[in-house]
Amino acid sequence: MGTAVDVRRESTDSMDYGVREPARLGRTRLPDGRHLGWAEWGPVDGTPVLLCPGAATSRWLGFGGDTVDASGIRLISVDRPGLGVSDPAPGRTLTSWAADIGHLIQKRALRAPAVVGFSQGAPFALALAASGLVSGAAVVSGSDELAHPRFTSSLAPQVKSMVDAVAAGPEAAAASLADFASAETLWDLVITTSAEADRTVYTAPVFQCAFRRALDEAFSQGPEGYARDTVLAMSRWPFDLAGIGVPVDLWYGQQDTSPVHSPDLGGTLSRMIPSAARHVLPTAAGALLWTHAGAVLDTLLSHAR
Rank of each mutant, 00 (worst) to 15 (best):
M1I: 12
T3G: 14
R8A: 12
D13F: 03
S14M: 12
G18N: 09
V19K: 09
R20G: 00
L30T: 08
L30A: 11
G37W: 04
G37L: 01
G37E: 02
E40R: 06
G46H: 07
L50G: 02
L50N: 06
G54C: 01
T57M: 04
S58N: 06
W60M: 14
W60T: 14
G62E: 07
G65A: 02
V68G: 05
G72R: 10
L75W: 06
S77R: 10
V78G: 06
D79I: 00
R80Y: 02
G84L: 00
S86L: 00
A89V: 13
P90I: 01
L94W: 13
T95E: 13
T95F: 03
H103Y: 15
I105E: 12
K107Y: 06
A109I: 07
F118N: 10
S119Y: 08
S119T: 10
Q120H: 12
A122K: 11
L128G: 04
A130T: 06
A130L: 01
S131H: 12
V134D: 09
A138S: 15
V140C: 06
S143H: 15
L146E: 14
A147Q: 11
A147G: 04
F151E: 10
T152Q: 12
S153M: 13
V163K: 08
A165K: 14
V166W: 10
V166M: 03
A174Q: 09
A174S: 11
A178V: 02
A181Y: 12
E196I: 10
D198C: 00
T200Q: 15
T200P: 00
V201P: 00
F207V: 10
Q208E: 15
A210S: 13
A210T: 05
R212T: 02
D216N: 14
D216E: 13
E217Y: 10
F219L: 01
S220C: 07
P223G: 06
A233K: 05
W237Y: 03
W237S: 02
P238I: 06
L241D: 05
A242G: 14
G243P: 00
G245I: 01
V248G: 04
W251K: 05
P259N: 04
V260F: 14
D264N: 05
L265N: 09
G266P: 00
G267W: 05
T268R: 09
M272G: 14
V280L: 03
P282A: 11
A285W: 03
A287N: 07
V296W: 07
L300S: 11
H303A: 05
H303S: 04
